[in-house]
Amino acid sequence: MGHADLPLSSGAAGRAAARRLNRRALLGRIVGGVVLAVVLVVWMGPLYWLINTTFKYKAQIQSEAPVWFPDPITLDNLEWVYDNLDHEALYRSLRVVSISVAIALVFGPMMAYALSRFHTRANRQLESWIISTRMMPPAALIMPYYFLLLRTSLLNTEFGLTLLYIAVNLPLTTWIMLAYLRSLPEDSEEAARLDGASRWGAFWYIVVPMTKSSIAAAGLLVTILTWNEFFIAFVVTSSNITFPVQVAGFLANGMNPEYGHMAAAGLLLSLPPVIVALVFHRSLLSGLHAFAGGK
């Protein structure tokens, strides 16, 4: 593989090297492009298969050889799922997600602001505690949550589930906002304080408007993760279920599985977050960087 033309470096040396483009380098470039294309096709394969199966008739789903394109295209599977779906589960998901995310977005930025601007000896411990609660596998605390909800008769209620989602979303929002606020220069806040604004006055009138897009990015990431959340909802709700739990119920079993229905349900579940992620990809990228970097 040629290396001279590859942008491993930029600047004068890189440009000089690029001029020496030869046939071997061109070949390397083509091979690399093909490899990248193949990787992308495999990468999107599972999602494509979900869409493909959704629009196929059963005869084509249960064929001897893979059928790569549905022919003819049918909406039967989507219709069946739409008619047999417990629509209340969908609305419940929307309610639980929006309420828990809203509460996280109200308190999270304030907590992050306090942690990033008011220095005390306990800040580091507070931060570690906050992020630890989010990074735990949810199974670690599921037994106490289950029994505490049982004792307070909140098991299998929307309110109980919302509380648990707040416990998941609030630390994550705080963490992401902390990363943004740390990288935000304090100059404009200080200027506002010199003009007589209080610390929280500076927060409301300077910091919040300046970090609007960061708050939105945090909200976006948290919304996607909560919409997709399965384990907690699966364990603590039995009849008042959320959308992912209901879709899990479509998992086909037995000798004559209805794979079309299953695919359609899976597609309905994953389309909203995927579309949101594609549309707001810039925001999502920035949120993910803040999530992972922390410092």
């Binding site: 394969g45 999602l47 298969w49 979900l50 919409w227 992912p244």
Partner: peptide, 20 residues
């Protein structure tokens, strides 16, 4: 495009892999 799997629900992933 590479970001997409991140937004797919784990439940839908389990479904699609059982199809594939």
């Amino acid at each position: 495009l590479v970001l997409v799997p991140l937004a797919v629900s784990p439940v839908a992933m389990a479904l699609v892999f059982s199809l594939i």
